[in-house]
Structure formats: structure tokens, C-alpha cells
Simulated assay, not measured.
Amino acid sequence: MSGNTITTPDRVTYTPSRAARELGLKRREFDLAVHLGRIRTVPDEGGGGRRVAPVEIDRLRAEDGFPRSLHESVRAVGTGEAAAIMEVTKERFTRLARLGLVVPVYFYLNRYRALVWLYLADEIRQFATDEKNAHLVKGRMPEGLREQLDTGLDLRPRNWRGRHLGFLLRQAEDPWQRAGALAALLDPVQIADIAKDPYERAHLNRFRPGPPNHGAPGSPTALLAERIMTAGDPDEIGWLRADLAQTLDEAREHRSAPRPAPRQAPPAPQHDAHPSEPERTHRLLGWLRRRSA
């Protein structure tokens, strides 16, 4: 067994890094492919995260156009390149993204600490070539949409959360993990209001994924990731709370949250009605001393 593979009696599995090399992908491209469901993973039997089976590597290699087709399916572009694909200005593309008409798949903080959203090139191309979207790509923006933009509407964080939740739910294998995925988008106050039992809440938090890895804890990037990860719109919070409450009911039926064993009082000392031979001797000697005195 090596750090890149695990051998069991019935199968061999690869770490994400090894699987990415086998497929000719950069690690971020591999992670995105997993998030999008392009690459199927299996749980590590040793509890070390997700892994990839060789049969999945073979399936991807057998697809038409590999490796180019796989690379193109996970190609993520920023605003400038996305606007060029759509043949619009960057300003117009940003307005379409704020309206939620195109959904980001990734974000990061650049060296100027500006938030950068990335989009799938394939999805941008499909949006631009769809005749139903011609009036959005070319010509004057409809008045109703302009009014929404004027109010400061920006659906990019919410749409990213929806996409990320889909990934978390695909990875979940039981109701507790599904409940943890839903809880990942709510702040602790909301979770405590739904899971009032402290032991149940502690068990739920075991399955609550944190934000994607964006910098060291407490860094500006990590704080930004945490803020984007947490739902803020009242209606979004409402349906997340409703789904979490329902999924928690299913989780309770599936398996109760563990609780500490009840404390037992120490056993009371036992007084033997028939003292032992040394004890009888000790009592007799004491009686004789008292009598002699």
C-alpha cells in the first residue's frame, strides 16, 4: 500500500491527487469535475475522505474525445473571458450574472482582495447560442430586469450556494449527512433553533462541512468564503430551515444521536453480618485489654 493507492481484498482505489494525474487534470480541475458529477468517487473505507476507483478512470478514458472533452467540460473562465465567449461587454455579462442567468462554479480573492467569480465555459457558450436568450445578449436590457439591478440585486452568491449544496447532497450517504449538508449553509443560531437538543446538535455538527478551502483560518479569504457559504436571504433561509427540520426527523428515525451513558451511583459498602476471623480476633483482644485495665 502507498500514499497514492489503497489495496483491499476486492479493489484498489486512488487518492484524488493520483486520480488527477491519471486523468491529466490539475487538482482544481479535478475537484471541480467531482463537484459537477463528472467524476464519481467512493468513500475511503479507512475514513480518509473520498477516493476514485480504477474502473472510473477507465470509463473516463474511454469517452469520445478524451482528454480534450474532459478538460473542456471543467474549463472555468472569469468575467473577461466569459464576456468574450458571449461576445458582449464585461459590464453586460456581469449584469446577466447578477440576475442569476449564469451561475458561477468557483470564487476566489485575488491579490487586490477583490472577489473573482468563475463560470463554466460550456455553460456560457450554451447560453449565448440559445435563441431564447437573444434579447438578453443583444439589444436593450428589459426594463423589469434593469429595475432589479438598480435595487442592488446580486444572485451570484446564492446561486453558487445552490450549486454547492447539490454537490454536498450527492456525496451524502445517509440522513445525518444530508442534514449536515443543509446545515452547512445556515449560521449556528439558525441551527440551534432547529436542533434544540445539545447532543443532537453536536452530532449534526460532525456532518456539517465547512466552506471550501480558501486560505488559512481567520484570513480575509477564509472569512469571505464563510460569508458566501452562509445563506442571507430570508426566503433562502426559510426553505433551508424547513428542509433541515424534515431531514432531521428522517435522521432521528434512521439513527438516534449518541448520548453519554447515565451516571451510576457507587455501590454502598457491604457490612458482613459474620465478621472474618482476623476481625473477630481483633475485637477479642480489645475486649481483653479493656477488662485488664
Rank of each mutant, 00 (worst) to 15 (best):
L186D: 02
T129P: 01
A184W: 04
R95A: 12
R113Q: 15
L70T: 03
R140S: 09
S69P: 01
Y106I: 00
Y106E: 14
A114C: 08
G166R: 08
V103S: 05
R75M: 12
V52A: 04
V137F: 07
R98M: 14
T79K: 01
M86H: 04
L118Q: 07
G180R: 03
L120V: 05
D174Y: 09
V88D: 05
E87F: 10
G65T: 07
T151M: 15
A53S: 09
R51Q: 13
V74K: 02
A82C: 07
N133V: 04
L136R: 04
A121Y: 09
D150M: 13
E87M: 13
S73F: 07
P67F: 11
L70S: 02
M141Y: 08
A134C: 00
L185W: 04
L145T: 01
L109M: 15
R146T: 00
A53Q: 11
L153H: 10
V105L: 11
E147Q: 15
A183R: 03
K132G: 13
T151W: 13
R163S: 11
R68A: 15
G100F: 04
E87Y: 10
A179F: 03
A172Q: 06
R146E: 14
R163H: 10
L101A: 09
F66P: 01
D150L: 13
R61A: 03
R50W: 15
R98S: 10
E123L: 06
